[in-house]
Design a protein around this nucleic acid. Structure first.
Length: 351
DNA sequence: AAGTCGGGGAC
DNA sequence: GTCCCAGACTT
């Protein structure tokens, strides 16, 4: 088998990487479990935001067995504040699959790794290359940006064909000698040098970058879609009786599944004949796909009143509620109303 | 192919 | 305000 010479692009970014790489903990290990954990955390998440979660989760669950056997509620509490909570649920499903289907030994090939829930083409390529040096090119947001500019690829990165186009290109550039180094290099290059608004004056690819030569750096990559934001209302009653709170787990599919919340007002609340004290409303909770307006009230139910418990809800002590994962919206609600005594007993800390 | 799913940082 | 981040899953 003939060894193809390394492409100038690959040589340049890999040399750049040697000089400019950040020291990140998941780059110091070959443990596929730790690498997998880091990749799930970093999906659609900046390094700075994910880093403390990686340290904390790896300390709490040092092995895939520890993760597989953990209570899901604990995992979601540790994931609190990171968002995309299905990542955490899939993470544990995958850990249990590794224990059951792979005898506790993390799968070693791209084709096996991608069968794990929560692991798609990007993550499987990342794990296979970083942990096992399999020559599978990663394609993430950084790779779209770098390759679209350097080679002036105008394929809309939102289109269904984009992944195939960019994967083929990246795969043609990956050197068989060091797939892991190439993958790390191109992503780090996109994260630090070829950023959305780059400083091309210090770029080592300046002379060979097609977009720079054509003064089209700002136009690439092409991305057509713009997500529209729906505005919704979520009002809460902090219902208290005998030092307990009326709360529930969000079990339905959708936003915040697996997290816990106070009594959510969906329609009218005529069923509750008690005075309410207005709580300070958190500012508008802005998500990438939702704009959530929130109002909240505190209700003290007399000890001797036999309240009819709404379906799905139950009484819980503030201490136990603290141990559950909660949306940041609720953490903000708690933080903003610490003059309400029962809310003082719920630590609003993320970590 | 389009929609859903969080939260936050950079500009 | 806009963009997008080491994307994957559902419909």
């Amino acid at each position: 088998m003939q060894k193809s010479p390394i492409h100038p692009f690959s040589a340049t970014i890999m040399a750049w990487y040697v000089e400019h790489q950040r020291e990140l903990p998941w780059r110091q290990t070959k443990d596929p479990y730790a690498i997998w954990l880091s990749e799930i955390i970093l999906q659609q998440t900046r390094v700075a935001q994910g880093l403390p979660y990686y340290e904390r989760l790896l300390a709490a669950f040092p092995t895939v067995r520890d993760l597989a056997e953990a209570p899901e509620a604990l995992l979601l509490r540790l994931w609190q504040g990171l968002g995309y909570y299905s990542r955490a649920r899939n993470l544990q499903k995958a850990a249990q699959m590794v224990m059951r289907d792979f005898a506790g030994d993390f799968p070693r090939t791209y084709d096996e790794i991608i069968t794990l829930p929560g692991v798609g083409p990007y993550t499987a390529a990342a794990i296979a290359s970083f942990a096992f040096n399999e020559a599978k090119a990663v394609v993430d947001g950084n790779v779209f940006r770098v390759l679209s500019r350097v080679f002036e690829v105008e394929t809309d990165i939102v289109s269904s064909s984009a992944r195939g186009v960019f994967t083929s290109l990246a795969q043609s550039l990956i050197p068989s000698e060091d797939p892991a180094g190439f993958n790390q290099s191109i992503m780090e290059f996109g994260a630090l040098q070829c950023t959305p608004a780059p400083d091309c004056s210090v770029c080592p690819l300046r002379v060979s970058c097609a977009a720079f030569s054509a003064s089209r750096v700002a136009e690439l990559p092409v991305k057509s879609k713009k997500t529209k934001v729906k505005e919704i209302q979520m009002d809460y009653l902090v219902i208290e009786q005998k030092g307990q709170l009326l709360v529930r787990e969000r079990t339905e599919n959708g936003i915040w599944k697996g997290l816990w919340e106070f009594y959510l007002i969906e329609g009218s609340l005529e069923w509750l004949p008690f005075p309410r004290q207005t709580l300070k409303s958190p500012p508008v909770h802005q998500l990438s796909h939702r704009k959530i307006n929130c109002e909240a009230w505190h209700v003290q139910v007399p000890d001797n009143f036999d309240l009819e418990i709404p379906a799905g809800y139950g009484w819980m002590s503030p201490t136990e509620f603290e141990s559950k994962g909660k949306p940041v919206l609720l953490l903000n609600l708690i933080t903003d109303n610490l003059d309400c005594p029962i809310l003082q007993d719920i630590s609003p800390a993320y970590l």
